[in-house]
């Protein structure tokens, strides 16, 4: 067993786990944060993307022990419970950037990471290139790309994505 302490969505977490526990397993099964999904379990699909020290990583290809002493943010940590959605979440709602919704948490966590690295003005080509590690089997990506562009702009001003879309 291995002792780990980390910050998850702003809260300190301590646990004693089998070292082979994947980060995604730890989040879903130990912490019951089931917003992070397991799609392919082979680091192809991106449904499991979370932020580790602010950077997008695939939590199905990271051991929970590798997050020891670090900070993890999941889709549940983007907006406060009961509060307004994060601008990127709002943009996905507004532009219907989903159908079944399974890939959406990973898409949104990746989208926020794209904005961190590439800024608030994103063209379609950049967004599509940057989404190479996130797979959606429903939408054909069109609305996802629109949602990310709008969400990126909305993250700048703090304005809601629906306003940015108008």
């Amino acid at each position: 067993m291995a002792k780990i302490s980390l910050i998850v969505n702003g809260n300190p977490v301590n646990a004693n786990i089998d070292p082979r526990t994947l980060l995604v397993q730890f989040l879903r099964e130990n912490l019951r944060l089931t917003g992070t999904h397991v799609g392919c379990d082979t680091s192809q699909c991106g449904a499991c993307v979370v932020h580790l020290d602010g950077k997008a990583v695939k939590s199905c290809t990271t051991l929970a022990v590798m997050a020891d002493g670090h900070e993890v943010k999941t889709i549940e940590g983007l907006a406060a419970d009961g509060g307004p959605l994060h601008p990127m979440q709002e943009a996905f709602r507004e532009h219907h950037g989903l159908q079944c919704g399974f890939c959406t948490p990973g898409m949104i966590m990746t989208a926020v990471d794209i904005v961190r690295r590439k800024g608030n003005e994103l063209d379609d080509h950049t967004i599509r290139e940057e989404l190479e590690g996130n797979i959606c089997r429903c939408t054909g990506y069109h609305n996802i790309v629109k949602a990310i562009a709008a969400g990126a702009r909305a993250m700048r001003g703090g304005a809601s994505a629906s306003q940015a879309a108008e």
Binding site: S43, G46, K55, T110, N134
Partner: peptide, 9 residues
């Protein structure tokens, strides 16, 4: 190499 999330690790 890989994709952005893979390159972060």
């Amino acid at each position: 190499i890989g994709d952005p999330a893979v390159r972060h690790r």
